[in-house]
Simulated scan of single mutants.
Amino acid sequence: FQVLYFPMFLLLDMPRRIVTYTPQTDWGLLNLTATLGGFIFGGAQLLLFYNLYRSSRVGPPSGPNPWEAWTLEWALPSPPPPHDFDVIPTFQADGTIRFGSGPGLPNGSGHSNEIGYPNGSSVHGSTSPLHHEGLSPWPVLMAFATFIFFLGLTIGKPANPQPVSYQPFWPLIADGVILGIISLFGYSRETFTVHEDMHVESWPFKQVPNMKLGIWTFLGAEVIFFGVLIGSYFFVRTNDAAWPPAGTLFDIRNGFAMTLVLLTSSLTAIMALASARAGNRSGLIVSLGGTLILGAAFLYIKAGEWFSLGGSGVFQNYSLPATSYFITTGTHGVHVFAGMCMTVYLLANAIRGKYLNGDHTTLEHFGLYWHFVDIVWVFLFPLFYLI
């Protein structure tokens, strides 16, 4: 490992992707050393595979805890079940670990055959049931769709040599989007079961339903995500002397129109929830339809602005401002589109008569997400269009 990588530190003055170089650079010996280290390091991996093969064929099984360890990672059977523990483990002041009502495993003490089985079950007794919802194939398909999508962005080619403009490989991008939608739909159709321990501390969220707490946690992560994008904008803005004056690059009228449309869509989302609580089916359908139309209008205006800026040579004259703008507003546009997909799902259920008999919490959770998307735009509008 050191023979392979340590010479690379000494080659810090060598540019990347250099195939040939003159002897006067003194890079030859260091590159030769790294090459030899690479062959040695790669050959050593054969020992790893040989060890895996031999261990699977020779010798007794190691068991769930061959090290006689007492920490949680070894307090499971081998192979571990998808859900790990049936009951959340609890820790006592003396270091004892308890699984439900089973006997404790004191810190540093010897273990019987009970170790390795969650919820206090015996090595000779029944095993814990499998949670089949943990074996979903949809996250794997979603990850593959993401890979296909970004592969389409990566392997694109320059459309014109002068000036250089980039043309993504749209068939792969379309395949990634289609597979992503299929995986999201399949994942949404699955049934999730959460087994909660009644002996864990629930303060300060005791009165908050788990689903709403999950939505707020998700939105907290989104705040961090958009905070990074906006922070990058501030960094670029304060360090770029050629930032265009307000109103010269981004049309204020477009920004105001999008702000008005998106804020109005928040009103229709609130009206949808109020209609559901009042049992007004037609009001619910009209409000959700209005939210969908207003979201589409926002993306229509935004797409027109994107295409107009993309064809104006903005990347040549204002590369950093344009990059900051397209990444930030593009990410926000993806969130708006995701909210529109949710609205289509809610609208289809509303047409079938759902959300009118007290089961309107889904609308409330959607409203939290949609209002968050609107709040983000309230920050983006003045940052890009007014300042």
Rank of each mutant, 00 (worst) to 15 (best):
L346N: 02
D374K: 09
E114I: 12
S282M: 14
G108L: 12
L383G: 10
R16L: 14
P66D: 06
E114W: 15
S282A: 14
K206S: 13
G310C: 07
P161Y: 05
L219E: 02
A348S: 11
G283V: 02
S136R: 04
G231I: 01
A297S: 09
L368W: 13
S308W: 06
Y117L: 06
M8A: 10
I40W: 06
F169Y: 14
H111M: 13
L135I: 14
S275R: 01
D13Y: 08
K206Y: 08
V376P: 03
F250Q: 00
A44N: 13
V376G: 05
M14S: 07
A93S: 11
G180P: 08
Y369W: 14
L213A: 11
Y318I: 04
R16N: 13
N31Y: 13
F379G: 09
F256R: 11
Y369Q: 03
G180F: 13
L309R: 12
S312K: 08
G63Y: 07
T329V: 13
G186A: 06
F218L: 07
A44D: 11
P66Q: 01
G247S: 05
T217W: 03
S188C: 09
E222L: 05
Q316T: 08
S109T: 00
G313Y: 12
S122Q: 11
S312I: 06
P81I: 03
F169A: 12
F384H: 03
